[in-house]
């Protein structure tokens, strides 16, 4: 790399311009985050103060305690629900999608390309197109109001994550699999004991992605769940906001605490995340 090259004055100016530009763009991107964060620690009146206050003074920590204790926004319960929902989906996705991905990426069978082509079609299909009948079916068997409709589909797999995982499974060397087969290992053992451990990192990436998507999923839990105590945070935040719109500081504290776990998760696993992205089904 050319980083250690001795910097000429013009190169240094170029670098400064570059960073100035990047920092300015970063500021634009961070503004909503920043505004959310400081609003979470202000009173309503302070949020709308003119001139704008860029630092909450004093920092109103009581917003946090009041959010965590108020009855009309069971934040803690909804947080637990979100963890449960996102966690379950992530685990199911890793298991079920890797089965299909192994089949598409490592095994050869007649009809494979057809089934994979259909998977791509399913991936491109708007959710809503298939939504109404599924909704009606769940309500006919009396399971609306529970997490079953939200979670069961992932027992079978998900087109997007199968698509993503297949790229990684295709990278597993054929010789490795053949060697194992010669040793008499069953395909299931090869999948579970050889391929899965090898692909631990991609699986973690997929799990992280599934976690973020599910954490932020809004439409399906909005429709299927019927109890404030059962909502995940994404829906809880919406119903709270639509009913108590004037309590901006509480809404903002809710938004802040909803986004925080995902941001933390991202910061902890940044490197993996970015690898997952740069390989999203391309190449």
């Amino acid at each position: 790399m050319s980083r250690q090259r001795k910097a000429t004055p013009s190169a240094r100016i170029g670098m400064l311009t570059y960073h100035a530009l990047m920092l300015a763009i970063s500021a634009v991107f961070l503004l909503p985050f920043y505004w959310m964060t400081i609003s979470a620690f202000k009173t309503n009146a302070e949020i709308f103060s003119n001139p704008v206050t860029w630092l909450p003074d004093p920092i109103r920590w009581e917003n946090m305690t009041s959010l965590l204790t108020r009855e009309d926004f069971p934040f803690v319960q909804q947080f637990v629900n979100s963890v449960f929902y996102a966690g379950t989906v992530a685990v199911l996705v890793c298991l079920s999608c890797s089965l299909a991905a192994y089949s598409f990426g490592c095994l050869r069978w007649r009809g494979r390309n057809l089934v994979f082509g259909l998977t791509v079609c399913a991936l491109l299909m708007p959710t809503i197109v298939t939504f109404l009948p599924i909704y009606l079916a769940w309500s006919k068997i009396g399971l609306t109001g529970t997490y079953w409709p939200l979670i069961t589909p992932f027992l079978f797999g998900d087109a997007f994550f199968i698509f993503m995982l297949r790229q990684f499974f295709m990278g597993v060397p054929r010789e490795l699999l053949d060697a194992a087969r010669l040793d008499g290992a069953s395909e299931f053992r090869i999948w579970w004991q050889i391929v899965m451990p090898q692909l631990r990192t991609p699986l973690i990436i997929v799990g992280l992605f599934a976690t973020v998507y599910t954490w932020n999923e809004f439409f399906l839990p909005l429709i299927y769940l019927q109890d404030r105590e059962a909502f995940p945070l994404s829906v809880g935040l919406f119903t709270f906001q639509s009913q108590r719109a004037v309590e901006w500081s509480v809404s903002m504290m809710g938004a802040f605490l909803t986004a925080l776990p995902m941001v933390a998760l991202f910061l902890l696993t940044q490197r993996l995340f970015q690898r997952g992205l740069s390989s999203t089904g391309l190449k």
Binding site: Y135, T144, Q226, R228, Q243
Partner: peptide
């Protein structure tokens, strides 16, 4: 049970149930 929303969200939950 309260806090299911007040507008379409609520009606839709009720129909679902």
């Amino acid at each position: 049970v309260c806090g299911l929303g007040q507008d379409t969200e609520f009606t839709q939950s009720l129909i679902g149930a």
